[in-house]
Design a protein around this nucleic acid. Structure first.
Lengths: 203, 203
DNA sequence: GTCTATACCGAGATAGAC
DNA sequence: GTCTATCTCGGTATAGAC
């Protein structure tokens, strides 16, 4: 089963498990080598595809990257769950979402790896990923934190500072786990990072 | 004036301002594109050199990378100053060094950019940079923090947690400044990051 | 739809004139 | 020492057989 992607020059995108395998392969390659150095040959090979199939189904390396990033952020959004009860119990919902975020970052380090690679150079890829994914997420965290503070809980930190803490301590260590292992001797753990965040955030 | 580099297959490394210009160009390219995607042609062009001169003087792209990284860490070490008085006044020396580190990270975001690119894939480059630079620095920070704690100052944080805070809040925001600008609307500032670190570290 | 073959480009490294 | 020219390799993308 195939479906046409709007604005994709008529290329067809396969759905289902087969496509998911290729997108996962793409995320591994893009997150470890960066967009430029990642090769569509390696991505196809990793998923048992042939290289020209990528161009047929996704149109270009660029569009494959976008679809893969969308796929990854959709997975995160699904994990974070609904924030419907945030007005009634802001602290509990914030803590639960934070736990989901840290667990996701440990299980899927590709997301922060891609973000940190793209974050260093301003350009169309960074603009796309920030407008579409990063800024909405940061604003969501900021609003949630504002509710936490309004409820009289949490440390005296601005939404931006909280965002920095969440990324710097909840995502970065897992994205950089090979370095962390070599420097400290042990891999970062979800429970420890979460406990550290709770202490610093005053939750 | 030239000098031979030990274990460099007899290649000659130029010294002085001319070489510094090339190393700076190399750091810009390596830190924004990553080792694999950076091209020696671009590096040479940026410094007004021709591409084959890089191979003549440094032997290979790999060795150029190592010399450039050494150059960058030497600059950081020079900025951090001496820690001789750390036993007498640990808090003051720690705060001063932290200030120098954050200021350096803002002025030279290339260091953390290169570290975070290399941190995601275990391999010879990561091993080299950790053994030679990152672990010694982390251990130095750990020892300094232990002295701070022994003096009864600072928050209840382990040396590893302090290291994570220093990197995550003192270096990462500047390395990712294009993203920070797009997400928050303003660039990270040395004084603000330093103030945040002081509050979290209890200094 | 999926393959092979290939066009086209740019990479790192090297040879050789000067 | 520094240049031009070039070798070899691997990248994306495309053409065309099946």
């Amino acid at each position: 089963m195939t479906q046409t992607v709007a604005g994709n020059k008529g290329t067809r995108r396969p759905s289902g498990a087969v496509a998911t395998e290729l997108l996962d392969a793409a995320l591994v390659e893009f997150s470890t080598h960066g967009f430029e150095a990642a090769s569509t040959r390696s991505i196809a090979q990793r998923a048992g595809w042939h290289q020209p199939q990528i161009n047929y189904h996704f149109g270009s390396k660029q569009e494959l990257w976008q679809v893969a990033v969308d796929h990854l952020f959709a997975e995160l959004t699904g994990q974070l769950g609904d924030l419907s009860g945030i007005d009634d119990a802001p602290v509990e919902v914030f803590r639960r979402s934070l736990g989901h975020f840290v667990a996701f970052s440990a299980r899927r380090p590709e997301l922060h790896r891609i973000m940190s690679i793209e974050a260093t150079v301003d350009g169309p890829r960074l603009g796309w990923i920030v407008d579409r994914h990063a800024r909405p997420l940061a604003e969501q965290v900021g609003r949630a934190w504002t509710l936490v503070r309004a409820a009289g809980a949490g440390a005296q930190l601005s939404p931006t500072e909280v965002w920095q803490l969440v990324i710097g301590l909840g995502a970065r260590p897992f994205a950089s786990s090979p370095e962390v292992v070599r420097v400290t001797g042990t891999a970062p753990e979800v429970a420890a990072q979460l406990d550290l965040l709770h202490r610093l955030l005053g939750l």
